[in-house]
Design a binder for these strands. Sequence first.
DNA 1: GGAAGTACCTACAATTTTGTTAGTATACCG
DNA 2: CGGTATACTAACAAAATTGTAGGTACTTCC
Lengths: 124, 124
Amino acid sequence: MKDYPAPPPGAAPNVLHPLCPSRQVLGMLTSRWGALILVALAGRTLRFSQVRRELGDVSERMLAQTLQGLEAHGMVRRVAHDVVPPHVDYSLTEIGEEAAALVRGLARWVEGRMPEIMGSRIPK
Amino acid sequence: MKDYPAPPPGAAPNVLHPLCPSRQVLGMLTSRWGALILVALAGRTLRFSQVRRELGDVSERMLAQTLQGLEAHGMVRRVAHDVVPPHVDYSLTEIGEEAAALVRGLARWVEGRMPEIMGSRIPK
DNA sequence: GGAAGTACCTACAATTTTGTTAGTATACCG
DNA sequence: CGGTATACTAACAAAATTGTAGGTACTTCC
């Protein structure tokens, strides 16, 4: 797992290529908390601690980190009102909403197919 | 962050609920290798080592493990021809293909939006 | 004959991810 | 006054993920 041919400069993005940046982006969107944050934030604005309560069990650390990652990639918009105690609003950008729609679609599909999935599951 | 109210027996699956099984399933489909395996296997049959080469940098260990997880949840079909040297074919089941279509959609979207994403990215 | 390919598994080790705790400045509630 | 809430960060610890090396049983290619 050392070196792979770097993708040629003008090559089309391909998630199957180990070194393609698109793979990292996909990784972000499908990461444990990334995906859930997108689902929770789709179509609405929430404060930091509201997002936290929505997901139920993210630690503050992970939430902050993941939100920063999404923000750095233009998916999340962060608006900090400079007051004490702090008040920060999070919402999705346009591309963020697009990504969220897809992730949500997947999440909803899973929720809808749970009976079949659990039914055909092979218990270990 | 210890205990959460267990989801009521008849409750509808909800990925935002920490203890809902649908969250685990979503986790599988969006896991590092899970998502890529679905993309690679969509619409075709590949042997173990072919899948490995498609992804480029999975270790055998992770590939085997992830394939088993997907198989256990009815997403992947494993057909072992009893010969030496070993020959095993992997393909997606019907629900597997459904899931793959969604994951693929996300992957393709990411690939297509890479210019915008990288453009609005905030380098650290 | 020796090397490589096949589809794994099993220890063991390294790496990455995630969690925990504490701290900050201030306001509001009882 | 004491406790709670807010949105984080830093330091440290624990846990989960991932990689590495070696073995298997036999075949084909050089």
